[in-house]
Amino acid sequence: MNVVVCIKQVPETTQVKIDPITKNLIREGVKSIINPYDLYAIEEGVRIVEQHGGKVTVVTMGPPQAEAALREAISLGADEAILVSDRAFAGADTLATSYTLAMAIKKIKDYDLIICGKQAIDGDTAQVGPGIAAHLDIPQITYVRKIEALEEKSITAQRTTEEGYEVLQSPLPCLLTVVKEINNPRIPSLKGKMKAKNAAILTWKAADIEAESDRLGIAGSPTEVWKIYTPPARSKGQIYDGDPEGAVNAIVAVLKEHLI
């Protein structure tokens, strides 16, 4: 069972700042980490391989410093790591990013399962995972909270919905995006960290993945950001305590006055 895990290096804080002119995320001066949801993807991949054999290949598209995220993934149990990095990828939106990653995975060729975190904490779009499956023309199960069964040619998984969960079955290869309920990511081992320090990280450029240049980076990104703003903070509600009957009467009076 060969598993590909796609990860993203993101700024540590969830309070990312946005450049008011370019509308891009400001990454300078913020510590980079593996997108927390991707940690669950790595853990699930590693557990599958521990149980079924095979290998976990972790892939990221990003600048050269994203290599640190890949090394961390190796310390957490991934076997191989590929950095997809080229200036031509700069400015990619979710369409161009998912295309680029899909082309890299095509080059990896031998895979049964692709696992992604449900979304990244910086962009929060949750589009790249599903996009990869679409580009590769393989089935996908999003928001997976549990893998019920994994056979040689099929997978059965629980997909989280707002009301509860659905149980879906899919042939392999298949792409999953996972939610945090799926597992409890391990703490890296000393041996894992030492292995990661010396691991060879492959770097693939645009030419290596045989991508069409007009589908990469800014050229391949139809998304236009018109405006980004912080929603206004919700004002505090008024609490009416004291005896329940008096409180109800007071609330009814306020409702009558303003709304009804």
């Binding site: 703490i187 890296p188 081992s189 000393l190 960290k193 030492m194």
Partner: peptide, 19 residues
């Protein structure tokens, strides 16, 4: 050393997350 930093970092993570 690099290895000692790893020991400290892993131990710190276990302390923060588990202990």
């Amino acid at each position: 050393t690099e290895e000692q930093k790893m020991i400290r970092d892993i131990s710190r993570q276990i302390t923060d997350e588990k202990i």
